[in-house]
Simulated scan of single mutants.
Amino acid sequence: MSRRHLLPIGVLAFCTAVDLISGQGQVLIGLLAMGPLVAAVVLGRGATIGYGVVALALAVALGFYDRQYTGEAVLGQSFRLLGMVVSGAIAVLACTLRLRREAALARLNSEAATSRAAVQLAASLQRSLLTEPPAVPGLELAVRYLPAMQHAQVGGDWYDAFPLADGDTMLVIGDVAGHDVAAAATMAQARGVLRGIASTVTGSPAAVLSALDRALLQLRVDTLVTLVAATVRPDRDGGTTTLTWSNAGHPPPVLAAADGTVSVLRRPADLLLGISATARRTDHTVQLTPGDTVLLYTDGLVERRGSTLDEGTDWLVQALTPLAGRPLEQLCDVLLEGMAGAVPDDVALLAVRVRG
């Protein structure tokens, strides 16, 4: 017998003893109603019903001892027994509600634990994918990622940089809609598919994004994705470096020239990924000289409460102007200074500089 049974048994034994000690004619039968009520707090529904039946049987038996089945006492005894039945029913109802509440709490705790585990797993996956950029002759690369504080450090922003077979380097900055485990999973899927496409599809960034758009729709990825894919091609004769990019609804790259001027590479942005497999994709090209820096970023960098994205972009230009000559790692650190843990959205940053 479980120790939890000791309490209702003790209550019934105590009430019976009190009634017997009080002597015949002292009606204390109503105290027995506490037995099933106590059982309802600590035991299951079946045990509560059992203690209700035991309490009723004791009340019937003690009625004979207390001489409650003669004369006018019968009516009062009948009401007392009816009260025992009602109290037993109330105890069973209370027990049922308690068990339902406990089951709901257990389910919520289990779901919360599962959710936390999924968030730990997604965060680990995200960190494993946000790798350090490769070493590229003639280029300097720097990357940063800041999670939004209110989104459990899991989101859909990412950066990537990897070499291509023709000697170019591909740069990617992307943002999957949402700030949860699903967004992180979609990000991982989009990143992997894009890498596979870029290694097999010959052509420009626009061709890669067109193939990625078709692949995401075929895979039934129904989440919207904004993305800038770019290739950097150093001039083989040591002259200018060519940056070619295609923009799928993403904030435009920013160019901090070696002479200190900062400009936004505003070009008409194409449709977001995930809407149409036949969306037209366009390439844009700019020539870079030694010392030039191009910044790719997600919208969390330029989002400000009460301000438009254009105003945020203007802020970025002003912030970059005095930083144009700084070492690239220092430039990224100063640009993000004070934003960690306080940004309303995730921030991913990818900076590339042509070495002098």
Results as ranks from 00 to 15, higher is better:
residue 255 L to M: 06
residue 194 L to P: 03
residue 329 E to W: 11
residue 176 V to S: 01
residue 333 D to H: 13
residue 234 P to Y: 05
residue 329 E to L: 05
residue 42 V to H: 00
residue 288 L to A: 06
residue 252 P to S: 03
residue 5 H to F: 12
residue 43 L to H: 02
residue 233 R to N: 05
residue 322 P to N: 06
residue 354 V to S: 03
residue 257 A to S: 13
residue 331 L to K: 00
residue 139 L to A: 08
residue 221 V to P: 00
residue 151 H to Q: 14
residue 265 L to M: 10
residue 113 A to M: 11
residue 73 A to D: 08
residue 244 T to I: 04
residue 55 A to Y: 02
residue 207 A to V: 10
residue 40 A to H: 01
residue 337 E to C: 10
residue 305 R to W: 11
residue 60 V to L: 15
residue 146 L to Y: 06
residue 205 P to S: 06
residue 45 R to D: 07
residue 5 H to N: 08
residue 230 A to N: 03
residue 254 V to N: 05
residue 299 D to H: 06
residue 74 V to A: 13
residue 207 A to Y: 01
residue 8 P to S: 04
residue 133 P to L: 01
residue 349 L to M: 07
residue 307 S to K: 15
residue 211 A to V: 12
residue 176 V to E: 01
residue 149 M to Y: 01
residue 5 H to C: 07
residue 59 A to F: 13
residue 217 L to Y: 11
residue 230 A to M: 04
residue 92 V to W: 01
residue 87 S to M: 14
residue 133 P to Y: 04
residue 290 P to M: 08
residue 54 V to A: 15
residue 50 G to Q: 06
residue 283 D to Q: 04
residue 15 C to F: 05
residue 340 A to Q: 11
residue 9 I to F: 01
residue 131 T to A: 14
residue 70 T to G: 08
residue 99 L to N: 09
residue 158 W to Y: 14
residue 18 V to Q: 06
residue 3 R to I: 08
residue 133 P to N: 07
residue 286 V to S: 06
residue 67 R to P: 00
residue 143 V to Y: 02
residue 327 P to M: 01
residue 42 V to F: 00
residue 161 A to N: 00
residue 239 G to I: 08
residue 340 A to L: 12
residue 88 G to L: 08
residue 58 L to M: 14
residue 264 V to Y: 00
residue 193 V to Y: 02
residue 274 G to D: 04
residue 302 V to T: 15
residue 269 A to R: 02
residue 312 G to H: 07
residue 30 G to A: 15
residue 9 I to C: 13
residue 329 E to V: 05
residue 42 V to M: 10
residue 330 Q to N: 08
residue 351 A to C: 10
residue 60 V to C: 13
residue 123 A to N: 11
residue 107 R to T: 12
residue 88 G to Q: 07
residue 167 G to V: 07
residue 249 G to E: 05
residue 50 G to A: 15
residue 297 Y to P: 00
residue 176 V to Q: 01
residue 85 V to A: 14
residue 64 F to D: 03
residue 289 T to D: 12
residue 326 R to H: 14
residue 339 M to G: 03
